[in-house]
Structures are given as C-alpha cells and as structure tokens.
C-alpha cells in the first residue's frame, strides 16, 4: 500500500479544518487554495504549532496563523486571557486537533507528537528530512489568512 500523502488525502486535512471552525466558532472557514510550497520557503505567520508524525509515516503537520486570528479563536473558546502563553497553547492545540482528526483516515499508525508551538517559523522545519514538498492549505476566517502545511510521507517502501 502506498502511504505517501496524495492530493486526495490532503482532503482529510481540509475536512478537519472545516470541522474545527464549525465546531469551535460556529462559522464556516474559507479554504482558499491548496498548493505545493516552494522548497525551503514554507508559509509562516506570527505563531506556528507543529506536530511531528511517526509510525508508518514520517514528517510533520503544522498550523500557522496571525496573532489577531488566534485572539478571535481564543474568544470563540471563551478564553479572555490573550497572553502570549495562551496564543502559543492555542496554535499548538489547533495543530494537534487537525493531525489527530486525520487518524480517522490514516489510522493509529499515523503517530503524532505533542505540539511544539513557537512564535514565527520553527527552526525544526529545516530538520525534517522528507523528500516531499509541503502541501499547503491556505484558509481565511474573519478576513484573516492562516495556513496548514502537511509534509508527510510513508515510512514503508511501496
């Protein structure tokens, strides 16, 4: 079974994004584009939450969003404390939710780490030795643009 991430499987993440905003904010999110990122130039905004993927797969999934969008999402969670600590917590939790939800399709061998959340672009993006270019899904919610990037490939040959 070929376990590389295909465009079809990217839909799994697109659905997870739509589901998240419907559940948390009660609003639809616009999926703008899905594209292959240029080498060495992943899309990043103010905060990024990154999940490492292992098991039968290797690579990472990350969610990157501007500060203002995360503040609105915190409000949707009922959180009034918008300190940096909570913005980082949220961006990591969103990345974790998207990746965890993808297991409905990929199964338990799509092993995910706890989130690494940073301001800006995580250095560790450079250390993920994957041959695939990240597949980026650009989303718009409340006029703010964010992105989820999926750079995962199968760990088993064939």
């Amino acid at each position: 079974m070929n376990k590389d991430i295909s465009e079809e499987r990217i839909r799994v993440f697109t659905n997870a994004v739509k589901h998240y905003f419907t559940q948390v904010a009660g609003e639809a999110v616009a999926i703008d584009t899905a594209f292959l990122a240029e080498d060495g130039n992943p899309v990043c905004y103010d905060y990024t939450g990154l999940i490492s993927v292992s098991g039968d797969f290797r690579g990472c999934v990350y969610f990157s969003a501007p500060r203002v969008m995360l503040r609105h999402l915190l409000m949707a969670h009922g959180e009034t404390d918008h300190r940096e600590e909570h913005l980082l917590d949220l961006v990591g939790e969103v990345a974790n939710t998207f990746s965890g939800n993808a297991r409905e399709y990929f199964g338990p061998s799509f092993a995910i780490s706890t989130p690494l959340a940073v301001s800006g672009r995580p250095d560790c993006l450079d250390h993920h030795e994957i041959r695939e270019r990240p597949f980026v899904i650009s989303i718009t919610w409340k006029a703010y643009t964010a992105a989820i990037a999926v750079c995962v490939e199968g760990n088993r040959p064939g």
Partner: peptide, 9 residues
C-alpha cells in the same frame, strides 16, 4: 476528550 478519532484508539 481527544482529537485522536480513529476507532482503534
């Protein structure tokens, strides 16, 4: 209460 929504988990 988890995001891991596969049946096996």
């Amino acid at each position: 209460v988890s995001a891991l929504n596969d049946k096996a988990t």
